[in-house]
Design a protein around this nucleic acid. Structure first.
Lengths: 121, 121
DNA sequence: ACGGCCTATGAACAGCAGTTCATGCAATGA
DNA sequence: TCATTGCATGAACTGCTGTTCATAGGCCGT
């Protein structure tokens, strides 16, 4: 399926591809943005709804929504006096799902015996 | 395949799961770590090899390797007086590959016409 | 047109993360 | 044992990032 032939991971050694990947991943590197995306993964929401769901200042939400917009992860559309935000497309949802799955998987490894940690015990 | 039934993305609304995912993703949120992982994706490397490949101070490399170790993304094993690092397992490689693929895909969306950006043109 | 809701933006602040410098520890070879 | 190589660690610094506060702009009711 989608990753039958892996793209050249050696590219990540180069500064530019590495920087781009890092920038995109930074969207998922802060709890507030992850929660916002989690809310939008359930359904499109107005800023007010997101604010209530996440429990942060409205201002902070708008700031992070701006970041997410510029990264192309979410889109906003005016509807009356409010703006409805949604995930940009299903790829974002898949990215979230895979990140979550990998996170769980990796944390299992951390809980496991240190057969892997051969240095600086 | 692997994500036939998506894990509950609504979990990401909760602070703790969000924080954990954010922590893990932060490993990919900085170019230096991405480049290190890119090098290790090609083959296991000693710290010196990574340092040469990435072109940073050896000290910085070790610091980031520590972060990556604690996140369970890489493992190190002593061999003589050097330490050979490698990706923890193939899941890490898959995560890198998918992140790279998603990055490319998302950047295509950004280059595309703003049919999606309906607010704050 | 005016007042009120909803969102966006600018500035200031605090905290953190990545780098560097200097040093310490481990392991080999003479 | 001593010197040397290779890696790790602690401290200090810098820059960035996320939050808050205050304010501005848009859009709808009346």
């Amino acid at each position: 399926m989608s990753h039958g032939t892996e793209p050249d991971l050696g590219l990540l050694l180069e500064p530019e591809p590495a920087r781009r990947l890092a920038d995109t991943m930074q969207a998922l590197a802060t709890p507030s943005r992850v929660r916002i995306l989690g809310a939008l993964a359930l359904r499109p929401c107005s800023v007010g709804e997101i604010t209530a769901a996440v429990g942060m200042e409205q201002s902070a939400i708008s700031q992070q929504l701006r970041v997410l917009r510029h990264l192309g992860l979410v889109v906003g559309e005016r509807r009356g006096r409010q703006v409805i935000y949604a995930l940009h497309d299903d790829h974002v949802r898949v990215l979230l799902a895979e990140a979550l799955a990998h996170t769980d998987h990796l944390r299992l490894g951390l809980a496991a015996p240190p057969a892997t940690e051969a240095v600086t015990a």
